[in-house]
Design a binder for these strands. Structure first.
Length: 533
RNA sequence: GGCUCAUUAGCUCAAUCGGUAGAGCAGUUGACUCUUAAUCAAUUGGUUGUAGGUUCGAGUCCUACAUGGGUCACCA
């Protein structure tokens, strides 16, 4: 039967005869790929299945190594003839043909091992076949005896080997060579765009990338176990919401066909989790995805992973203490230390973190005392006197936020809690007793980056309604930032909500800090990218 | 969204003043029984992101677009 494959540049059709099946593809292949398809065809012609359904494996590579190590402590052990056999599976990462002896490395999820293939063991025909028809990137299954080579490397002396899966496309191959004592990388898969678009290849080729995501999993597990040990209940709340809220962000809109109803992808969990406090669940948390229809940057992705927890009968100072304990616990679980290297700086998460009153911070860094400026006009004038230009008609909260991000945030390298935020920046936070324009709110900053946000939650339904209405007035002019009034949330609060402290943290940013990554995309397996072509 | 830099072989990168597009790795062919992603010999591979323009001649200059990086804006 005739199959055909098209060359991507020349359009030349490669005719091939297939004995067992018809292969056909509308995809365009380059020369290397066509070459490998021809090899695949040779497997079929020999009656070998290039994609067998099942693999057999007796050990992972690290298990084989451990078994060998423990046996090697026995008396009379011959490392060149251990008698210990294993069947290992993995991906071919290197091949070195030495005539009648071939060396190769395979890699599985646990590590790498050298394969030694002797013509004497396998037959010179098979060795030739291994050289011709097996490529870097193919998955194989190899059986043999575990030994130490003459040069001292742990190896598998192979007595049989078969293909588990043929790779058609070459993996982006990196090559490091020592030249004059210097390590020279000839080819590393380093192009960020290509790496993110083909994350599978990135992961296959760059072990340090795999490590980031192992660490990420550890971090999330550490958070879960910490909160669970504090009697928090993990819950799940709707991602598709008829109304969105709990943060200032534009939502993604979607539509339910059967119900003829527009729905929003959540921008936060806050309003649903606090409904649970009304329902007498005292300590709840959720780890999940939020979606914000906003700009993309080194610290923003349209969807990101958020942790929020709500804690009845606690206030923001207790939340602050729990936060620093939790993050220190995560650092210990991940690094065995509270000290973490981040972008050339050492960050120490050990409690207590620095606590800095927001007014003091702004005063010290910008010279402006926000308490001396009760109105937006007055504050704007003070900022103009310092040579800062402000947007006409900006609210007082926006101006303070501006001072914060320009003067204070870049200075907050070691973990710091800024606390006591102005009321008009914090519509869901409770006012500080005796200070109606200040709320019991803090944000945690590390390496100049906002990591978390928490407050003593507002639980007065009448005050809450007032805040919503103020907000609607403040942002009502701008359609895109308009916030809907969540009447059901007010109804829930009307049944009585215990006083409580709430907390939110971007998990991706924490992972950045813990894995020394400078962009959020590096810690997302599949970061958002524009469509190509 | 603004500004700015980038896009060349499968991967990583060169290409002087606008004058024949190159290298390493991988690939292909051959040699080699302890190599370290070996070594030796030979060799293939390109519509230089896309579409226009200027020019005798464009990877190089101009315009637009696409994608990415950096940065600013936005993000209570």
């Amino acid at each position: 039967m005739l199959g055909h494959f098209t060359h991507h540049k020349t359009g030349k059709i490669l005719p091939t005869i297939f004995c067992l099946m018809t292969l056909q593809s509308t995809r365009q292949f380059n020369e290397i790929e066509l070459n490998r398809i021809a090899k695949l065809q040779r497997f079929l012609e020999r009656g070998e299945e290039p994609y067998p359904t099942r693999a057999e494996r007796t050990h992972t590579i690290s298990q084989a190594r451990a078994g060998f190590d423990s046996l090697s402590r026995q008396e009379g052990f011959d490392p060149g003839n251990s008698g210990l056999t294993a069947t290992l599976c993995g991906r071919l990462r290197s091949k070195r043909a030495m005539g009648k002896l071939h060396f190769s490395h395979i890699e599985d999820g646990s590590g790498q091992i050298q394969l030694m293939l002797y013509g004497n063991d396998l037959g010179s025909d098979f060795l030739k076949l291994f050289e011709k028809d097996y490529d870097l990137g193919d998955f194989v299954q190899a059986s043999g005896m575990l030994i130490i080579s003459k040069t001292g490397e742990f190896s598998l002396r192979v007595h049989s080997l078969r293909l588990l899966a043929k790779g058609i496309s070459p993996l982006p191959a990196a090559k490091e060579v020592e030249e004059n004592g210097e390590k020279k990388v000839y080819s590393a898969f380093a192009n960020r765009e290509a790496r993110f678009r083909e994350r599978y290849a990135d992961l296959a080729v760059n072990p340090n990338v795999r490590q980031i995501f192992r660490t990420r999993s550890k971090i999330v597990n550490a958070i879960r176990s910490f909160l669970d040990s504090q009697d928090f209940l993990e819950v799940e709340t709707p991602i598709l919401q008829p109304l969105y809220g709990g943060a200032a962000a534009r939502p993604f809109v979607t539509h339910h066909n059967q119900l003829h109803q527009d729905l929003y992808l959540r921008i936060s969990f806050e309003l649903y989790l606090k409904r649970l406090l009304v329902g007498n669940l005292e300590r709840v948390y959720e780890i999940g995805r939020d979606f914000r229809n906003e700009g993309v940057s080194w610290k923003h992705n349209p969807e990101f992973t958020q942790l929020e927890f709500y804690w009845a009968y606690a206030d923001y100072l207790q939340v602050m203490a729990l936060t620093e304990q939790m993050i220190a616990h995560v650092a210990m679980q991940v690094h065995g230390s509270t000290k973490v290297a981040y972008q050339g700086q050492e960050i120490d998460f050990a409690p207590p973190w620095r606590r800095w009153n927001l007014r003091d911070a702004v005063l010290e860094e910008s010279g402006i005392d926000i308490d001396q400026h009760e109105t937006a006009e007055s504050l704007a004038a003070a900022m103009h006197a310092k040579g800062l230009h402000t947007e006409a008609g900006a609210a007082r909260g926006k101006l303070i936020d501006r001072l914060l991000s320009d003067f204070v945030e870049p200075k907050l390298i070691q973990p710091t809690f800024l606390y006591n935020y102005p009321r008009d920046l914090s519509p869901l936070a409770k006012a500080l007793p005796g200070h109606p324009n200040t709320t019991e709110r803090f944000e945690g900053y590390v390496a100049g980056m906002e990591l978390c946000n928490a407050f003593t939650e507002l639980n007065d339904p009448l005050d809450q309604e007032q805040r919503f209405l103020e907000l609607a007035e403040m942002y009502g002019k701008d359609d895109e930032e308009k916030h809907p009034l969540d009447e059901d949330y007010l109804k829930a609060m009307s049944y009585g909500m215990p006083p409580n402290g709430g907390f939110g943290m971007g998990i991706d940013r924490l992972v950045m800090l813990m894995t020394d990554q400078s962009t959020i995309r590096e810690v997302l397996l599949f970061p958002h990218l524009r469509q190509n072509e």
